[in-house]
Amino acid sequence: MPTVSMTVNGKSVGKTVEDRTLLVQFLRQDLGLTGTHVGCDTSQCGACVVDVNGHAVKACTLLAAQTEGARVTTIEGLAAADGALHPMQQAFMDNHALQCGFCTPGMVMSAVDLLKRHPNPDEQTIRRELEGNLCRCTGYHNIVKAVQQAAKAMAR
């Protein structure tokens, strides 16, 4: 069994795991970071999206071993050290962009990534860019509004 080391939310971690361990299992089970969720088994729902070396990826479709040495940010690591919410988290709260909260961590991580590539997105771009994240509660209406608010807040 290999030892996997990486930096997660700014902390160095190392664990010995089975080769077949997925990144999402490593986060949830080995590190106890249960904010990253598993909502499907075909890489479609996006509840498991995390940031690896600056890119949003689906942690259910990545081996922990593949992220050896990487910088990983999960939903637990998004808020500032002083606890202040990231503008995207704040925008989700302000716009009621979450209901049951299950898709939310992945949705927020994808939305943050989206703004890196499209700092000033129109509605169509937001909807297209959220293609990899399913939400069953909100009908996406308020998620779109939240991303727009966050884009404005982050442009300031």
């Binding site: 999206v49 990826v57 479709t61 989206l114 293609e131 990899g132 994240n133």
Partner: peptide, 8 residues
């Protein structure tokens, strides 16, 4: 795919 799949 989708943005996350395109990143991998």
């Amino acid at each position: 795919g989708d943005p996350q799949v395109r990143n991998m």
